[in-house]
Design a protein around this nucleic acid. Sequence first.
DNA 1: TTGTATGCGTTATCAC
DNA 2: GTGATAACGCATACAA
Lengths: 331, 331
Amino acid sequence: MYDVGKRAGVSSATVSFILNGRGSGGDRISEETRQRVYRAIAELGYVPNQSARALRRQKTDRVCLVIPQIGTPFSDGLANSVQSVAEAHGYSLILSMSGGRERERHVFEQLRRGLADGAVLFDPEHLTNEELAQLAHAGVALVVQCNRVQGTNFDVVKIDEIKALQDAVRYLYDHGRRRVAFLFNVTESGIQEERLQSYWQTWRELGVPILESFVLRNVGRLREQVYRSVSKLLQSSERPDTIMAGSDMFAISAVWAIRDAGLRVPEDIAVIGIGNIPEGEITHPPLTTVGVVTPTFGDLTGLLFSRLASPVPLDGRVMTRQWELILRGSA
Amino acid sequence: MYDVGKRAGVSSATVSFILNGRGSGGDRISEETRQRVYRAIAELGYVPNQSARALRRQKTDRVCLVIPQIGTPFSDGLANSVQSVAEAHGYSLILSMSGGRERERHVFEQLRRGLADGAVLFDPEHLTNEELAQLAHAGVALVVQCNRVQGTNFDVVKIDEIKALQDAVRYLYDHGRRRVAFLFNVTESGIQEERLQSYWQTWRELGVPILESFVLRNVGRLREQVYRSVSKLLQSSERPDTIMAGSDMFAISAVWAIRDAGLRVPEDIAVIGIGNIPEGEITHPPLTTVGVVTPTFGDLTGLLFSRLASPVPLDGRVMTRQWELILRGSA
DNA sequence: TTGTATGCGTTATCAC
DNA sequence: GTGATAACGCATACAA
């Protein structure tokens, strides 16, 4: 900036003022000076340094979206949504993957060190309430989607899923299903597992036993892995009449596997997913699932940017999203 | 740091030295002092400020992976791969989405301003050679996957895809296919389009005309959108006997649509994708495609981190990945 | 073995 | 209308 100023015959202060007219000094830079400075900037290829600016302003103009894993239809939609809103508010979006304990802690550490002004944490598994509070206390605008936590200085979006999960089981029970298989992945403190626990619990209350061989605890993250897991399951002599999957993606992969094995959905095997991703509408039959009826990410972004815009620290807000049983053809 | 020092009865310099012992001073901090400082750090909840550190060291310890769009199996694999390697080298990974002209320029600007020490740019559409050179000149370690560019101060990974694309067309031609449909999306300077141009060109050389109504230029990004586009195509009285898709994901969605329409792949309609994603192995029939036989991202990360590690500016290196026609069942 | 002093590139207050 | 100047939080050469 000093060099730019020198070339334009002004001080670095003037350059700074022209680049982002704040502080005192009013609007009063002569048009002529302004032009000279712009020319000098162009000639020198000058570009302001973000680290220095952030240091001085105590503000990075960045927000961070933390997702366990990219590559799912859901994270895709979320990221695009947050990015649009961030841009509209003059923030850059940074994406971080938090899958696994190490990575989650790493991202947390980065945020503590001032990576961004605000963050949306999606399903953090290992962070405690205190750590989140600490982060928020350090000045990071925080919105957390997670059922485990509650904060006084950050916002939480919760999902009320229990009832919908119970509804799903009762529905299947009422339609005579008794041989139930589960598809999910065990992660360190996995939310998938929690949800399937709800299923399991409800079946037990209805007096239906769960066959251990029908519980697939490690179906893999990728479609082809899930497909193979299910194909294998179908080869055994004892076949399930129902598959409850930990995600819609798993459920869809299961539907393929079933159809490719020459069986019918839902006549031979009913399939139900979790999450309600758009893709579920085009499987044959369309996927029965459990989730938010019309998925939207407006609540998350709304909380984040209202918090960023607020001049005073806001209290912790809580929003609850209601899940429902969405009956389509597959179950 | 000053406060930490005060509490531990030392200067801020000593704290800094303990936190990252470099510079002069050797290793010589007494164990006792060290402990006192660590205790003070813990008690105060002190955490170093990245902006200040980056400003002083002229180094962010971050690398940035720039992908047009997350949510594809490919970007997922790439991101995970880069993240692992980055962690191993002591860097944090930042993900940025560059889809669309605005966003791409925005990310470019962020990098110029010092967002990260290095970056992998995947298929940048709008950046010129000069801009990339300028970025590299500014000190950003740069690896670009793109066929359009070549740099003297950054690395380029190219894909030699022409021959494989031509092979695909000839193969289809030799098997009697003549009514060819195309599936892709027109983007501002899209690579999908380029590839389909190669197809088109080859068909023309073979004397096969392309029906305009078989060219779907806007099938959408999501699986369900593609599925619907194809379903609609199949309803018209004139049906194609071949579908050449701009990506494997499109091809897979097409296979579903065809099967759900009661037609057979490849007997009624042959389908061929581009990219060779793992999921292609589990469609029925498995997907014929064009791409790298065993996808790996080692070349990209290798180039990036060798560049970051190099004490002197490296010349621009070029690596070429060879594409091949991968015959499986769908064509 | 530790402290002093300086500068990294900005921004913002104040004086002129 | 514009220019000095003092932070912002840290790292490091050098003095002690």
